Amino acid sequence: MQIFVKTLTGKTITLEVEPSDTIENVKAKIQDKEGIPPDQQRLIFAGKQLEDGRTLSDYNIQKESTLHLVLR
């Protein structure tokens, strides 16, 4: 499924993921596309910060959901 990741600069990254993918996994995909190390990434969905060990389905993230990427 496709999800979108919006950065603070207003750029939107499109990722191909599975509901069973972990947040860690998603961060690795963002690193592949954008070169941002996962340890600098914070992903936010519905106002919650997403934890590395959880999966997209844990957070009920469905196709075409938009996550927000904050760098630390």
Results as ranks from 00 to 15, higher is better:
1 M>R: 03
2 Q>G: 15
2 Q>N: 15
2 Q>P: 04
3 I>C: 02
4 F>G: 06
4 F>H: 08
5 V>R: 00
5 V>I: 14
5 V>G: 01
5 V>T: 02
6 K>A: 13
6 K>T: 08
6 K>W: 07
7 T>K: 08
7 T>G: 08
8 L>F: 14
8 L>G: 05
9 T>M: 10
9 T>H: 09
9 T>E: 10
9 T>A: 04
10 G>K: 11
10 G>A: 10
11 K>Q: 12
11 K>I: 15
12 T>I: 04
12 T>Y: 05
12 T>C: 02
12 T>V: 08
13 I>P: 00
13 I>G: 01
13 I>C: 02
13 I>E: 02
14 T>A: 14
14 T>N: 09
15 L>E: 00
15 L>R: 00
15 L>W: 01
15 L>N: 00
16 E>G: 14
16 E>M: 12
16 E>C: 02
17 V>I: 04
17 V>H: 08
18 E>K: 09
18 E>D: 06
19 P>H: 10
19 P>M: 07
19 P>L: 09
19 P>V: 14
20 S>L: 05
20 S>D: 11
21 D>W: 05
21 D>L: 06
21 D>P: 00
21 D>V: 04
22 T>H: 07
22 T>K: 08
23 I>N: 01
23 I>P: 04
24 E>D: 06
25 N>Y: 09
25 N>D: 13
26 V>M: 05
26 V>C: 02
27 K>L: 06
27 K>I: 03
27 K>M: 15
28 A>T: 15
28 A>I: 11
29 K>M: 11
29 K>N: 09
30 I>K: 00
30 I>Y: 03
30 I>V: 12
31 Q>W: 10
31 Q>S: 15
31 Q>I: 03
31 Q>C: 02
31 Q>H: 08
31 Q>L: 05
31 Q>G: 05
32 D>K: 09
32 D>L: 13
32 D>C: 03
33 K>I: 10
34 E>Q: 09
35 G>Q: 06
35 G>L: 04
35 G>H: 05
35 G>K: 09
36 I>Y: 10
36 I>F: 13
37 P>K: 14
37 P>E: 09
37 P>N: 06
37 P>Q: 09
38 P>N: 06
38 P>W: 15
38 P>Q: 14
40 Q>A: 15
41 Q>W: 04
41 Q>I: 10
42 R>T: 06
42 R>W: 08
43 L>N: 00
43 L>M: 05
43 L>I: 08
43 L>K: 00
43 L>S: 00
43 L>F: 15
44 I>F: 08
45 F>E: 02
45 F>M: 05
45 F>A: 04
45 F>W: 08
45 F>N: 08
46 A>K: 09
47 G>S: 14
47 G>H: 07
47 G>F: 12
47 G>N: 12
48 K>E: 13
48 K>I: 06
49 Q>H: 06
49 Q>L: 06
49 Q>F: 12
49 Q>C: 03
49 Q>P: 06
50 L>D: 00
50 L>M: 09
50 L>Q: 00
51 E>K: 06
51 E>T: 13
51 E>H: 13
51 E>D: 12
51 E>P: 04
52 D>C: 03
52 D>E: 08
52 D>I: 06
53 G>D: 06
53 G>F: 08
53 G>W: 11
54 R>T: 09
54 R>V: 11
55 T>N: 08
55 T>K: 07
55 T>W: 13
55 T>D: 11
55 T>S: 14
56 L>V: 07
56 L>E: 00
57 S>Q: 04
57 S>K: 07
57 S>R: 10
57 S>G: 10
58 D>I: 13
58 D>Q: 05
59 Y>W: 03
59 Y>H: 15
59 Y>G: 01
60 N>T: 09
60 N>H: 10
60 N>Y: 12
61 I>G: 01
61 I>V: 10
61 I>W: 01
61 I>P: 01
63 K>H: 09
63 K>S: 05
64 E>S: 11
64 E>I: 10
65 S>D: 04
65 S>M: 14
66 T>A: 04
66 T>S: 06
66 T>W: 13
67 L>S: 01
68 H>T: 15
68 H>G: 12
68 H>Q: 04
68 H>I: 04
69 L>F: 03
69 L>M: 07
69 L>Y: 02
69 L>Q: 03
69 L>I: 04
70 V>T: 06
70 V>N: 08
71 L>N: 04
72 R>K: 08
72 R>S: 08
72 R>G: 10
